[in-house]
């Protein structure tokens, strides 16, 4: 078995021995060497402040980016739109529903989920390209009022001067979906 060798004479415990000035001289340089080694070790870590600092700056820069605007979901001017503007925006989306559904069914006659999916693609394209930019609001605002319209089964009338058919929506938008069935190709 391995047994530790006895400590060298100069490292043995002399706590009971009388004070010896020479012994202090012996210990002094040893302590300094250890401190020096520790110091060197810490100094070797100093350059790592460069990548750490850069990472910190980058994290701070990204984390301090301007916050998003707040979307009010209650009140008379919720979503940043008046009641009339909300009604008009919903009309602009919902009035196309019959056309888009017919077109989607023709495109995917044997795949109801795909037809539904195609319909929703048209809704999204209309919201992001036309409705939100026209009203100057964030798309989330339009989607919120879209949800409100579907949920509340809105049957809105066309806005005054609408070039399209005069009657209002006779049917609310369908609040159900065709269950998910992705295509294999």
């Amino acid at each position: 078995m391995f047994e530790p060798a006895p400590a060298p004479a100069e490292h043995q415990d002399h706590s009971d021995a009388p004070f010896d000035a020479n012994a202090v001289d012996d210990v002094g340089p040893a302590v300094s060497a250890r401190a020096l080694a520790n110091g060197r070790r810490w100094m070797a870590l100093l350059p790592w402040l460069a990548p750490l600092g850069l990472a910190g700056v980058l994290c701070a820069m990204v984390a301090s980016a301007p916050e998003q605007p707040t979307l009010r979901t209650r009140g008379a001017t919720r979503y940043g739109l008046s009641a009339a503007a909300r009604s008009e925006a919903f009309w602009q989306i919902a009035s196309y529903e019959p056309v888009w559904r017919v077109r989607a069914a023709a495109q995917f006659p044997d795949h109801p989920w795909s037809a539904e999916d195609d319909y929703h693609w048209n809704v999204r394209a209309h919201v992001t390209r036309l409705v939100a930019p026209t009203l100057g609001v964030h798309p989330s605002a339009i989607w919120s009022l879209y949800d409100e319209g579907v949920r509340s089964a809105w049957r809105v009338a066309p806005p005054p001067g609408s070039p399209r058919r005069a009657g209002g929506l006779t049917q609310p938008l369908r609040p159900t979906i065709v269950p998910l069935r992705p295509r294999t190709r």
């Binding site: 998003q68 605007p69 707040t70 979307l71 979901t73 999916d117 929703h120 693609w121 809704v123 999204r124 394209a125 919201v127 992001t128 964030h138 798309p139 989330s140 605002a141 989607w143 919120s144 879209y146 949800d147 579907v150 949920r151 938008l173 369908r174 609040p175 159900t176 979906i177």
Partner: peptide, 22 residues
């Protein structure tokens, strides 16, 4: 622009998968 974060009671909506992050 990223979708706006809103804290309101959860509920299902018809939604739209093409704007799934909304």
């Amino acid at each position: 622009p990223a979708p706006l974060m809103v804290d309101q009671p959860f509920r299902q909506s018809l939604g739209n998968r093409w704007a799934a992050d909304t």
